[in-house]
Amino acid sequence: MKAFAYTRADDVDGAIAALAASPGGMFLGGGTNLVDLMKLGVASPGLLVDVSRLPLTEIEETPDGGLRIGAGVRNSDLAAHPAVRARYPALSQAVLAGASGQIRNTATTGGNLLQRTRCLYFQDVGKPCNKRVPGSGCPAREGVHRDLAVLGHSAQCVATHPSDMAVALAALDAVVELRGPGGERTVPLCDFHRLPGDEPERDTVVEPAELVLAVRLPAPPAGRSAYRKARDRSSYAFALASVAAALDVRAGRVADVRLAFGGLAHKPWRARVAEGTLRGAPATEESFAEAAEAELAAAEPLRDNAFKVRLARNLAVRVLAGLAAPGEEETGS
């Protein structure tokens, strides 16, 4: 690891100013991804601006019936919060489906959004990677890519975004609050992460020295919500595919639906095609399957990950069918 300077910010504006004055620096939150990447040599900031003690650790009710989640709220506190569990169960389930108890105690809401892909080539500085070294190539395309993207990838990059939390936030129409040297702005979660295109080094739309202040959730969607994840082992593994959904059924028909996929793309994949197909349709497994297939028709699987398309379809059908038939006891699985 390269030696670096360190400063602890006293307030948000001080943190932003410190980073704006030091191009090569980075914010430090929980550090569960950044410190790991520094050990691997993937990240080598000259300065860390510690934002972990800033007063961004509250979960507050908002006037519109939603919640404002401070960027410094730890993942475990987010998942356990009574209002999150009661009104946004998909979010609590998604957070609990990720990482381990130790990591969730340390990792923050803002850092979870900003974590980098776990693509093997990105994490190995001995290999080319267009995300790490633009223009160096993408060995994943022909190499180990079983857990990489099937939707929205480019010739430059087939990485996936690893977050579970962000998939639930995408389905729940969350909005990210940012503040930078030029002031504050808000970005819908669905527009916060990018597709790789020909700039795979940019994961998000965050500008230099911009700090995530909070994630805002609007009032919960009507009906029920859930998150379900498929992975290679039953705990402590990244998603092969995952689904966050909210469903409101009235008189046997879909009154409203929100659907997002994880593990399939460079960003949480909000399934607007499927949602459009489902609104007004009968709330049956046939409709759910037809909608998921309509969304996944855009998939372009690589040599070894075509199984993800079927997996994602089946997960979507199971989650939506479970939401349409209340009564069965739900857990985070």
Partner: peptide
């Protein structure tokens, strides 16, 4: 740490909603 978390009512991935 885990026993304290469960004692405070913190849910896990397998805790029924």
């Amino acid at each position: 740490g885990m026993i304290a978390e469960a004692g405070e009512g913190a849910p896990s991935h397998v805790t029924p909603l």
